[in-house]
Amino acid sequence: MNDAVLQAIRTRRVVRAFTQDPVGRDQLEAVLDCARHAPHAGNRRLHRYAAVTSPPLLRALRMVSPGMLQRPMAAIVVCVDWPQVHAYGISPGNPGPYIDVGTACATLLLAAHGAGLGAGPVTSFSRTAVATILGLPQGVAPELIVCLGHPAAEQPPAMRRRGGPAWQDVVQWERG
Score class of each variant (00 low, 15 high):
Asp3Val: 14
Val15Ile: 15
Arg16Asn: 13
Gln20Met: 05
Pro22Glu: 10
Val23Gly: 03
Gly24Ser: 14
Gly24Lys: 08
Gln27Arg: 14
Leu28Trp: 01
Ala30Arg: 15
Ala30Met: 07
Ala30Cys: 03
Ala30Val: 05
Cys34Glu: 11
Ala35Tyr: 09
His37Met: 09
His37Thr: 00
His37Glu: 01
Ala38Pro: 00
Pro39Tyr: 11
Ala41Asp: 00
Asn43Gln: 15
Arg48Asp: 10
Val52Tyr: 02
Thr53Ser: 08
Ser54Tyr: 05
Ser54Met: 08
Leu58Ala: 07
Ala60Arg: 15
Arg62His: 14
Met68Glu: 11
Arg71Leu: 12
Ala74Gln: 03
Ile76Arg: 10
Asp81Thr: 03
Asp81Val: 05
Gln84Thr: 09
His86Ile: 02
Ala87Ile: 03
Ala87Gln: 12
Tyr88Thr: 01
Tyr88Asp: 12
Gly89His: 06
Pro92Phe: 02
Pro92Tyr: 02
Gly93Arg: 10
Asn94Trp: 01
Pro95Tyr: 06
Gly96Ala: 14
Pro97Tyr: 05
Pro97Cys: 06
Pro97Val: 02
Val101Leu: 02
Val101Ile: 15
Thr103Tyr: 06
Thr103Ile: 03
Ala106Glu: 13
Leu109Asn: 07
Ala111Met: 08
His113Gly: 00
His113Trp: 12
Gly114Glu: 05
Ala115Met: 10
Gly116Tyr: 06
Leu117Ile: 11
Gly120Ser: 15
Pro121Ser: 07
Thr123Val: 14
Thr123Tyr: 04
Arg127Gln: 15
Arg127Met: 08
Arg127Lys: 13
Ala129Asp: 15
Ala129Cys: 06
Leu136Met: 09
Leu136Gln: 12
Leu136Lys: 08
Pro137Trp: 01
Pro137Tyr: 02
Pro137Gln: 07
Gln138Trp: 00
Val140Pro: 01
Val140Phe: 00
Ala141His: 03
Pro142His: 08
Pro142Met: 05
Leu144Asp: 08
Leu148Asp: 13
Gly149Asn: 06
Gly149Cys: 09
His150Tyr: 10
Ala153His: 09
Ala153Gln: 09
Pro157Ser: 14
Ala158Tyr: 07
Arg161Val: 08
Arg162Met: 01
Gln168Pro: 00
Asp169Arg: 10
Val170Cys: 10
Val170Phe: 06
Val171His: 10
Gln172Thr: 15
Gln172Met: 11
Trp173Leu: 15
